[in-house]
Every structure is written in C-alpha cells, then in structure tokens.
C-alpha cells in the first residue's frame, strides 16, 4: 500500500481538462487497439471478481445456492468481526481528524515553515512497511494493553499511523484551495478564539477534504490484515482468512461483499469530489447506477 498518488481526490481544483482531445476523429487502428487493451486487461481484472460470484453461489448438485451469502448474516464470529471493524474504522477516522486537522491548520496559519517537515512525517509510513512496524510495536502495545485493556479497538493507534499519508494528502488539498488565512484573520480580528476559528471557520471550508480523508480511512481500516493478524486481534480480514480454511465459499462471499462495499465507498468519494464547491457540478445525465 505504498502509493503516494492515490485515488483520493485532493481538494485542489484541477485546471479544466482540454476537451477537444477525445472528440476528434482518429485513425481506426488506434481506436481498435484501445478497445483491445480495455477488453483484455479489463477482462483480466474482472475474471477473478466474476469467479467469486460463481464460486460463492455454488449449489450442492447443479443449481445455484445463496447459502454462503446467507451464512454471513448468521455466523456470529463474522458478524462480531464486521461490527468490530466498523467501530475501528469510525474510531480511526475520529482520531485521525482530531490529530491532523488542528495540527495542519495550525501549520497553515501560524508556522508555515514547518509544512515540509509535517508533510515528510506524514509520508513516512509509506517507507516503513506495516510488517516492520508490527515488529517494533510489541513493547508499546504491552503498555497500551496494560493501560487501556486488551480490546481490538486499541488497534486505532496504529491505524491512525497507517492512514496518515492518505488523510494528509486529502486535507492538505482542502487547506490549499480555500483562503483559510484571510478568513481566520478576519475571525480573529473580530474576537474569535482559536478553537472557534477551527470549528466555525476552517472545518466548514474544508468539508469536502475531510469527507475524502474519512472515506479513504474507512476503506483502509476495513481492508487491513497485517497488523491485526500479527497482534492477534479478530478483525474482519483476520476472520475472513480463518474462515477460509474451513468454509471457502463463505470466505469468498464475504470478500466479494467487502470489495463491493469498498467500491461503493470509493465511487461515492469520486462523486463527493466532483461536487466540491468551486467546481462545476457533474451533469446529472452522466450519473449511471453503480454496477
């Protein structure tokens, strides 16, 4: 997961793309090549996903059966893990925002020369693989578990670190696109306190960026396996993996459901990004149903 440039739309309003480009008539060999690429590579990407649908609906003899999908709703371990992962992602989002938004706003307004350092610090987790982090984090988690108990929710502390690069990118874009400095100065000169500036002035202006950061964090936490499994916490991915040893069909069904859920999240993220104030709202006719 070492992507610096992710699909997270940063808040910067992109310059309008040249639109004359794809409209022009082109020689057909290029167009044919383009479709061949789309079909072959797209097909390769789709094949395992379709196979999941087939595999998880296999009946006993010849017919189809939704038993594996029904099992998701009745398996207590699985439901517990899903709840746990959802709670974890909510907690991670809150903690990340509490840590990052005030800090980055402060840097933006008061200590701009620290900006590069904060950015560097936020990108650091990309250079330190999660598996390496787990190796060193044992002693720290002894303390965390001693102080806060042995709940899987304590994973939040590491997850905040893991989502840092992505959340930073989103929020940085948001802060860059709104004229926070002027607004904050105006509010301060009218007597607003710093917390008030943060809540009433900054937050509403970077709402889109905050939503982007939240969605990417949720998706990342729901998909995380490395840290949870090696610290022995039963999150969704850990349970999917364990279940796979016993009942592959159910594991495949949950995996498909989780991927679908992540897709809906990211598609919604793209929609949110295109509705950002300041950008032209997407044409309503272009909104197809999510497949």
């Amino acid at each position: 997961m070492a992507a610096v440039n992710t699909s997270v739309p940063d808040g910067r309003t992109r310059p309008p793309r040249p639109s004359a480009r794809s409209r022009r008539a082109r020689p057909s060999p290029v167009s044919a090549l383009r479709w061949a690429v789309l079909i072959v590579i797209g097909g390769y990407l789709l094949l395992p996903l379709l196979a999941m649908a087939e595999f998880s609906t296999r009946g006993t003899a010849t017919g189809r059966s939704l038993d594996a999908w029904r099992e998701i709703g009745s398996n207590a371990d699985l439901l517990g893990a899903i709840t746990m992962s959802l709670e974890l992602s909510a907690l991670t989002v809150v903690a990340t925002l509490i840590l990052l938004v005030p800090t980055m706003t402060w840097v933006h307004l008061r200590v701009p020369r620290m900006r590069r350092l904060v950015e560097f610090a936020c990108l650091l987790p990309l250079t330190i693989p999660a598996i390496v982090l787990v190796v060193g984090i044992g002693p720290i988690y002894l303390w965390v578990n001693y102080l806060l108990g042995d709940s899987p929710l304590t994973l939040t502390f590491v997850y905040v670190i893991l989502v840092l690069p992505y959340a930073h990118r989103a929020i940085d874009g948001g802060l860059g696109s709104a004229d926070i400095v002027t607004l904050a100065e105006a509010a301060r000169s009218l007597g607003a306190s710093w917390p008030r500036v943060l809540v009433n002035i900054v937050l509403p202006n970077i709402r889109g960026a905050v939503i982007s950061a939240s969605i990417i964090s949720v998706a990342l936490v729901l998909g995380e396996f490395t840290v949870a499994s090696l610290l022995n916490f039963d999150t969704l991915q850990v349970v999917i993996n364990l279940l796979g040893k016993r009942d592959a069909a159910v594991s495949v069904a949950v995996s498909a459901a989780a991927l679908l859920f992540a897709f809906v999240l990211l598609y919604a993220l793209a929609q949110v990004a295109s509705r950002r104030p300041g950008t032209v709202a997407a044409d309503a006719t272009e909104e197809g149903p999510t497949p």
Partner: peptide
C-alpha cells in the same frame, strides 16, 4: 489498496 486477503480468495475461487 484494499484487496489483501480478499484478492487471495478471489484467486482461490478462480
């Protein structure tokens, strides 16, 4: 970015 374990199962199914 969110595949991990789930992609492994997708390939087991394939």
């Amino acid at each position: 970015q969110f595949g991990g374990v789930m992609l492994a199962f997708a390939f087991l199914a394939t």
